[in-house]
Write a protein that binds this DNA or RNA. Structure first.
Length: 156
DNA sequence: GCCAACGTTGGC
DNA sequence: GCCAACGTTGGC
């Protein structure tokens, strides 16, 4: 198992939870992910200290707005057990939780938004398979390479 | 608000 | 196991 730090991109709708919200609270359990691929990345791939690009989706100017770090190992998402939560999952139980998450800690806000529009223009540099610009891009958590991470931040 | 893309569900 | 129906994501 490599101890090398990994890099990720995580999307959030700013109306629900923005980079400013993360700055205010400092650390946040990344709850509500209900996609198996995204869950697997959190549960199986993330390690404390990994770096995260924080992306605002479903908003006027979608793009990367800040950075964060992984602040915990994976553990069950409490909201799956809460009947009153939007994220309640009747098929999950304490004995067999379905959904796991990690805590995400604020690192910094970017001086400006690196807009999806500009990121698309860098398709050749990033690689056509880069998940953010691939057709039908819907995954909310996915890995980026160290090179993609530093390149994207260099656009700031 | 629209709608394409795509993941999930459930009948068969 | 197939696949139509349905729900959600997310850019525009």
């Amino acid at each position: 198992m490599s101890k090398r730090r990994r890099y990720w991109l995580m999307k959030s709708e700013p109306d629900a939870f923005s980079i400013d919200d993360l700055e205010r609270v400092g650390t946040e359990p990344w709850n509500g992910v209900r996609n198996y691929q995204a869950r697997n990345f959190m549960r199986d791939g993330m390690k404390i200290g990994d770096k995260v690009l924080f992306y605002h989706s479903n908003t006027k100017v979608p793009g990367i707005v800040g950075t964060a770090t992984v602040a915990s190992g994976a553990y069950p998402d409490e909201t799956q057990f809460d009947r009153k939560s939007d994220y309640y999952d009747p098929k999950a139980s304490r004995e067999e939780p379905r959904w796991h998450l990690v805590d995400i800690a604020f690192e910094r806000k970017l001086s400006r938004t690196i807009r999806l529009e500009e990121i698309k223009q860098q398709a050749e540099r990033l690689g056509e398979e880069f998940a953010l610009i691939r057709r039908g891009n819907r995954l909310s958590v996915f890995p980026v390479s160290a090179d993609q991470y530093s390149f994207l931040l260099s656009l700031e």
